[in-house]
Structures are given as C-alpha cells and as structure tokens.
Design a protein around this nucleic acid. Structure first.
Lengths: 232, 232
DNA sequence: CGATGCAATGTTGTATACAAGCAGCGCATG
DNA sequence: CATGCGCTGCTTGTATACAACATTGCATCG
C-alpha cells in the first residue's frame, strides 16, 4: 500500500503487489507484461518477479507463454459458474462435517459475528465485508477440522475474489448475507446437516446468480473505461 | 527416464525428477535436501532447482523453511482421508454433470476401455493401471465439460498419487476397478445421476479404506528399511 | 508483386556471484 | 561449572550476466 522507496521488497511482497494490480483491474485481462517491466516498476531484480509470476501462474492469475511474455488471464463467466458449483459441493461437505464436529463454542462465536442485528453497526464501523465473508466460509471448514478442505476453498477464493468483492460490497446484498450466514450457523448448532447443507447451497447459488450479472456489467464498464482512457 | 548426460535439463524435467524421487520413496518424508545438493545431482544450476522446488511446495510435496532447508513433507493418514472425502464430493459433481452433458460417444468409448472382459488382456500387455485409472476419473470431469473441476481433481491426485499407485497395483483390486468404473459409466449412459453418484461414491470409499491400511504398512516397511539401511 | 529466408530484437531460461540470515558450537567469563 | 556472547559455516534470497529461442520486419530472389 504505502510505498517505502528505500526498503528492498521481498518476493512475497512482489506477489501481493502484482496480485493487487490484477484484482483491482489495474492490469487488465489480456494485457501483456514482461518480467523486466515489473522488475523496473518495483525496483527489484527479475528474480523475485519471476518467482511471484510463477506462483501467480499456478494460481491462475496469469499465464506465461515461454519466451514470449506474461499475460493477465481473462476470467470468463462460464469458468466462474463452474467455480461456484465446485464451491457448493465443497462447502456442503464442510457444513456436513461442521455439524458433526464443530464445537458449539465456535459456532456461537460465529453466530455473534453474523447476527443480523449487528449489520448496521458493522457497516458504520466500515468493516471490510469481503474479508469477513471469506473468513466465514473458510471458518466452517476449519471449524470442522478439515484443513485441506479449507486450503482448497482458499485457492478457489483466490480465483473468484475479484467477483466476490464486487458482489459483497453491493449494499442491497450485505444484510442478506448476514441473514443467510446466520441461518446456516443456526442449523449447524442444531446439528441438522440436511437443512444446513440446503441453506449453504441456496446462499452460494444466490451469490452466483448475482455475481454473474454483476461481473458482466463491471467488466464491460472497465473495458469501456480502459478503451476510452489510455493507450499505454 | 533414460539419462542423457550431455543434455542440459530443463526446469520441468527437474520438477519431474524430484517428484519421482519423492513419490517413489527415494526421498523419504522428513528428509532434508538443499538446493545445492539437488543442483549437483542433476548437474544444473540452483535456479531451475529452485523453481521446481517452489512448484513442489505449492503442490504440497515439500516445505521450504527459509534459510534453513527444504524438507520432504510427510503425509499423514488423516490428511489423506480428507482428500478422499473431497474427491467424493467433487467426483459426484463431475458424474452429475456428465449425466447431463457427456456425449454418448465418449461414454461408450470409456466403457470399451473399462470393459471387465478386457482386464486380462490389459494386464498381459503391461498397461500402467495407475495412469489409466487417473485418466478415467479426470476424464469424467472433462467429458462433462468442466475443465476447472478437472484441474482440481488433477491437483488432488498429485497429492495422493503415491498412495493410489500402491492401491491400484494391488492385483486383487485391479479387476474390481474395471467393474466399478464400468458400472459408473453404465449409469451415466442411462443418464441416471442418482445411481451414478452412488456408484462413484462407493468406488472411492472402497479405494479410501483400502488405501488407508495399505499406506500404513507401506510406510512402516519403508521406514524400517531406511532405518536398517543408512544413516545419511 | 509475392513468398521466403535471414538477421535483429526482445523475451524468457539458466548460470553464477554476492548478500543476508540462522543455527550450532566454541570460547571466554562470572 | 554454567551461561552468555560472538563467530563461523551453511542455506536460502537476490542481483546480474549470459544463452537460447521465438517473433517480426526487411531484404532479396523467383
């Protein structure tokens, strides 16, 4: 965020910086960047840039065409829908396990955090809902003692975070998110796996449908904006 | 496979070589290796070794402790069981989609490959069952036009390949594998998602239970062997 | 005029040199 | 004898130089 000119940046920082540039649409899908460019930009050598790009490639943010350049990967709607489907399958699994083994204490703790009554207060405090939302979904898997499942959810989130950010920040959805999360947690507390699975499915499906249209418009906007603005 | 001493190896090859050493128990969990060692061993510089290790780290084969060394990661039974559970969820999803959209032609093609009548012939020909098996499971997702799902299954397979290899090569299971795969395909051809999902679930569950005991004994054997053999 | 070869340029791939940091050990000192 | 401090060796982290290769534009030839 803040630029410290003197400090030499580490690979992990470069990774974050590039990812931010992508997820904030500063670098647009299809753009081609070279390792040298990025190295100059961040004032480091190509080595850490390369490592960061390698990781970003594994995670699907960019694709490196050998000897040619590095391209920001496009995300198409079909791909996103697929990820949402996968999320449903995995999170239903997480919820099922949570019903079996997530301690009451943790569930109640989460319920406090997602009590719809808290919504306005949180908003007033300027809580970053996208972060809180991610913590909820990952937290179910972690609460159920399924670290690998949590890992997979994290990696999926990496891919769709761009969209979820747009999604979750839409005002008209934020209260609904509280309600839906709260409902899921209630069912978990009651150890009713069937209802909990259904609730989480509905919740994700709603997100998906919303995200779909939202993405289209957001991308279109950005595209227009880019086209109008610069010729870098 | 065959060693060409003159040819300089590329990063991808180094990656494969190291992974093979791990999955074939040539490098044992807990072992510490240094980049320099590997570079010397493969007669390349540290750079490609580093890149290969980075990738292996992402995929969970090794863990690099900064400034200290690179350790072959242990796989514990609990973790493996979790992966099998995840596979059930994901492959049920794949099968469901396959019932909807996998073309008859592809299904029939797969059924030919997995016709139990072919089993003895395949064995005689020395077919690598672990490869064929992986192609089946991935193939369902691909046939259903779900490339991202296929990707995720691939990455899970990377993690449990060691075990699956032991599993699938056990003679007494190979014919059963043909039968179970064939059954799943039959249900898909009939577009009976319910039965297909149940069949794939049973199939993976059986694998899991078998793998569990198998891994324990295999690991124990190797451990004993190592303990007896060397003190490197 | 068009196609083809060829060289120049730019990009990633690899090797090597140097920096930084941590662990373990030995030494000195209380 | 115990303990704290610093030093050395080893390992990863980063910078840079060089190699290989793909693309592209131009020139030359049919």
């Amino acid at each position: 965020m803040t630029k410290l000119p003197g400090k030499r940046k580490t690979t992990a920082e470069i990774y974050q910086l590039i990812r931010n540039k992508i997820t904030s649409f500063e670098m647009f899908p299809g753009d081609r960047v070279t390792e040298h460019e990025l190295a100059d930009l961040f004032e480091v050598s190509r080595t850490p840039v390369r490592e960061a790009l390698k990781r970003l490639e594994v995670e699907g943010f960019v694709s490196v065409r050998p000897k040619h350049g590095c391209f920001i990967r496009d995300f198409d709607i079909v791909e996103l829908a697929e990820y949402y489907d996968i999320r449903i399958a995995l999170e239903q699994l997480a919820v099922e396990h949570a019903c079996e083994s997530m301690p009451d204490k943790l569930v109640k703790q989460a319920m406090e955090a997602w009590d719809p009554a808290r919504h306005d207060d949180d908003m007033a405090r300027g809580i970053d809902l996208s972060v809180k939302d991610e913590a909820f979904h990952i937290g179910l898997a972690e609460g159920a003692q399924k670290p690998m499942l949590a890992d997979m959810l994290r990696s999926i989130n990496n891919r769709i975070r761009i969209i979820r950010r747009l999604d979750i920040n839409a005002d008209n959805r934020s209260l609904r998110t509280y309600r839906e999360h709260f409902e899921v947690l209630q069912h978990i507390l009651n150890r009713d796996a069937g209802k909990a699975k259904l609730a989480i499915k509905r919740h994700i499906l709603r997100s998906r449908d919303f995200a779909k249209t939202l993405t289209l418009t957001a991308l279109a906007q950005k595209k227009a904006q880019i086209r109008a603005g610069n010729t870098r």
